[in-house]
Design a protein around this nucleic acid. Structure first.
Length: 474
RNA sequence: GUCCCCAUUGUCUAGAGGCCUAGGACGUCACCCUUUCACGGUGAAGACACGGGUUCGAAUCCCGUUGGGGACGCCA
């Protein structure tokens, strides 16, 4: 089954519904991506909804950071961001309705009582679910209470999942969800919970496809019961396999950075991250490189696998280098500039620096690398790495450099081919290998043993800088 | 523990019963290129978790076992 077979035949509607209790997570970003891709592919809509009913933990800072992450990845929403806290009246009226039709009731159990009963059930080796005792309780007690949804516990609920297939749950396994948080008002505190809000919002926002992480699969049968109680049509469900850490457990902080913005700050390109994320759980034959346009064209839920996938940063680095190499110098100059500034340096405009970027981009895996590799082009005096100095700038090497310097002084034009020819003549006359001259030059001019081709470097540095850097050697 | 999901090299994956002597990519290793490091090129090692079925034929379908993961919140 694919979304194109949507029986409603209207434009499909997708959504991403993060909770603002932290930054945009890598896993969330992939969920958002898959939804966005399908919306773009099918001419549908992509809706962003902030699920902030947990007022204790939701923060505006998180919302800002999620939006920033989305916009950095260029996952633009057609509608929203909506906030659930702006829609409280809506949820309240639904709770009222559920109570009125006998599908919701007040539960007076205290957290302590609940905890106690759970312990007993666990000890007996049973599933620690709510026993439904307040279904029969006097509904007019003067005690704080929460609202629970009355689950039908006979029969079974089948989730027709676009990825997992049909998944059957015995209704007796499901317990009565809390849909309204506790308090003393007419509907407890009047603050609804996630399981109620998702259903109402997805229904009212006419979401046709609910695509989310498979950690939600267990919630789905209960949500289906809510849809049915409310007499709302069911969306299609698709539960994506999780992104895993190296130990195969769900990706979390202890596995390393999980914030999308952290990857931005580490110098990854949004295109590379998008490409990488798309390939966890999805494939299109043997292809590895996908532009956004190709993803929109080729992505399909039919080729999303069922098993979790490990986040492999090595591969991300490889992809990032691939994109870096293929980006134009002007683009890279703009992208790398903030990273250069973080080093306390300035990347000026001009063809000279574009050439420098062209030289170093091949070997950089991130924009941080790129900025570092550019460093020696941007400083007036290089700091020579002591280890490199000791190893390469031997007395013999210094002699050789001293001998070469006047030739450089006279070199005309000061260009790669000329410089290389001069170097070749010199080493040939000495019966040496090029490395004997190239490495001392490299260390003297760049401060390290690693750089692009040294004659290209010299060309960009220019005669004046080259001679200056050579002149301050011992 | 209970329920649910999952199972191809270290990792991401291709695989829709014969096209599989299991393909690609990352990583690893070797060699080539070479002024260093990368890039690039060539090559190598490396997987169908196990056991039963079904079938002329199974990585592919079914059952079981084992292993892993997720859920079991007045979080989402």
């Amino acid at each position: 089954m694919s979304p194109t077979t949507d029986p409603k035949k209207t434009a499909p509607r997708f959504r991403f519904a993060p909770s603002p209790t932290g930054y945009l997570h890598i896993g969330g970003a992939r969920t958002a991506l898959f939804n966005w891709l399908l919306a773009r592919q099918l001419g549908g809509s992509f809706i962003l909804r902030i699920e902030d009913t947990d007022r204790e933990r939701s923060t505006d800072e998180s919302i800002r950071s999620i939006l920033e992450g989305m916009s950095w990845l260029k996952l633009d929403a057609d509608e929203g961001p909506f906030r659930q806290t702006d829609r409280m009246e809506l949820y309240k009226s639904h709770v009222d309705k559920l109570i009125a039709i006998g599908r919701a009731y007040k539960c007076f159990c205290t957290p302590e009582e609940l905890e106690e009963r759970k312990k007993i059930l666990t000890a007996k080796g049973e599933k620690p679910k709510y026993d439904g005792r307040c279904r029969q309780a006097n509904q007019t007690q003067d005690k704080p209470y929460c609202i629970r949804f009355l689950n039908r516990d006979e029969g079974a609920t089948v989730v027709h999942d676009l990825i997992k297939g049909d998944v059957t749950f015995q209704n007796s396994e499901l317990d009565d969800l809390v849909i309204g948080r506790s308090g003393r008002g007419p509907t407890g505190s009047g603050v609804p919970t996630y399981n109620l809000c998702v259903v109402i919002d997805d229904a009212l926002m006419r979401i046709s496809h609910v695509i989310r992480g498979d950690d939600h699969l267990n919630n789905t049968p209960r949500q289906i019961q809510l849809y049915e109680a409310l007499d709302y049509p069911l969306p299609q469900f698709a539960h994506l396999p999780m992104i895993l850490g190296a130990d195969k457990s769900r990706l979390s902080k202890r596995h390393g950075a999980t914030s999308v913005l952290a990857y931005r700050d580490m110098g990854f390109l949004p295109d590379a991250l998008i490409n990488f994320l798309s390939r966890i759980g999805w494939a299109h034959g043997d292809e590895e490189i996908f532009s956004r346009e190709e993803l929109i064209q080729k992505f399909s839920l039919d080729h999303v696998g069922k098993s979790g996938g490990v986040f492999n940063q090595e591969k991300l680095l490889w992809l990032n280098n691939h994109y870096l190499k293929n980006y134009g110098e002007e683009t890279l100059a703009t992208l790398v500039r903030p990273f250069v500034e973080k080093l306390g340096l300035v990347l000026p405009e001009g063809p000279k620096f574009l050439k420098a970027i062209a030289l170093v981009k091949e070997r950089a895996k991130t924009l941080v690398d790129l900025a570092n590799d550019l460093k020696f082009f941007l400083v007036d005096t290089v700091e020579i790495d002591p280890e490199a100095e000791q190893k390469v700038l031997t007395p013999e090497a210094l002699d050789l450099l001293r001998e070469f310097t006047p030739q450089l002084q006279a070199a005309e034009p000061f260009h790669e081919a000329t410089l290389k020819a001069l170097a070749e003549d010199l080493i040939k006359s000495k019966g040496l290998k090029m490395v004997k001259l190239a490495q001392p030059l490299r260390v003297a001019l760049t401060g390290t043993t690693v750089s692009p081709g040294i004659f290209e470097v010299m060309t960009i540095l220019g005669k004046e800088q080259v001679l200056k850097r050579l002149s301050i050697l011992p």
